[in-house]
């Protein structure tokens, strides 16, 4: 009997570990991306950030030197294009301002700006995990800098994702592209509402709440503010293609994200929790969690 056990030790161990990992996956599948990680997860994140910073430093230095000193030809062309675009936009902006003043909307816009005045914390991206099955970034700011789970992460072009785990000096951002990411969004032109979901690839999927709602290729999507996680009006992306097959039960569209997720070096964390997130993960709740943690 003992001989049999000794011989089948490795197959038994193999089967046991397979079962254990399957159970872990099933349990973790039920956990939302915003649920605070256990202490080993936070400790690993804290430990990994300095190592990742050291490892990424030579590459960053090389890339920076390339961009600053060698790839100047492209910069000159880009500069010229940007100058033209700025001039065009300034002109357009003037026209819009005139129109808005005339129609009495300026006061509303001032109010909207006040709503959007959320303190932003600039952070450096020190590590990234861009794979089809999970898309996250590691940032060099953590709880010490008032970063909390559930805070939106943005760049000038639009929404990047959401802080999903924090340790003392680092934080993990789950990108919009992650398959567990869901954002309530509206089409800027027609105000059609739906849910934007990560597909694990470079694209996003927009599922309209009402089948047949007005959405076209080229339409811009922004956050709706519904759900209380993201503030209203953050750019998400542009509709690339509308899936209008009559056989399809869902009315969906493919979205080209506004942000180039492959080239993120610096991002900003919005240091404000949405009302619903604050209820779930706010300071009072966080304190209770911290007290419970070893």
């Amino acid at each position: 009997m003992s001989e049999l056990l000794r011989r089948s030790r490795v197959p038994l161990l193999f089967a046991g570990l397979l079962l254990l990992t399957l159970v872990l996956i099933l349990v973790d599948r039920r956990r939302g991306i915003l649920e605070t990680g256990a202490w080993p997860e936070r400790a690993l994140l804290e430990l990994a950030a300095p190592i990742q910073q050291v490892v990424s430093w030579p590459g960053e230095l090389l890339g920076e030197s390339w961009q600053r000193y060698i790839a100047l030809a492209e910069v000159q062309q880009e500069n010229e294009l940007l100058r033209q675009r700025v001039t065009a936009l300034e002109e357009e902006n003037l026209q819009y301002a005139e129109a808005l003043v005339a129609s009495g909307h300026l006061a509303r816009i001032v109010q909207m700006r006040a709503d959007f005045e959320i303190p932003l914390l600039p952070c450096e991206v020190v590590g990234q995990n861009i794979k089809p099955w999970s898309r996250t970034l590691t940032l060099n700011r953590g709880r010490e800098d008032r970063v909390q789970t559930g805070m939106p992460v943005v760049v000038a072009h639009g929404l990047v994702g959401l802080i999903s785990l924090t340790s003392q000096n680092t934080a993990r951002t789950t990108l919009l592209l992650d398959r567990r990411s869901l954002v309530d969004a509206i089409v800027r032109r027609s105000r059609a509402r739906g849910i934007v979901q990560g597909r694990g690839s470079g694209d996003l999927e927009f599922e309209l709440l009402v089948r047949g709602d007005d959405v076209r290729a080229g339409d811009e999507l922004i956050t709706s503010g519904v759900g209380g996680v993201f503030p209203k009006g953050l750019r998400i992306g542009t509709v690339r293609q509308v899936n209008t097959g009559s056989a399809e039960v869902r009315h969906t569209a493919q979205i080209q994200p506004a942000v180039d997720f492959g080239r993120l070096e610096h991002v900003s964390v919005m240091l404000q929790l949405g009302p619903d997130v604050a209820k779930l993960y706010g300071p009072a709740n966080g304190q209770r969690r911290a007290e419970a943690a070893p």
Binding site: L20, T21, I25, I33, W133, S134, L165, R172, T174
Partner: peptide
């Protein structure tokens, strides 16, 4: 070796934010 790769896989999951157990499996 089996135990080691399983533990390392779990660490990869914790580091990457993937489903816990995905890399380990």
């Amino acid at each position: 070796g089996l135990v080691l790769v399983c533990v390392l896989g779990l660490c990869s999951d914790l580091l990457s934010g993937a489903l816990l157990g995905q890399h380990a499996l």
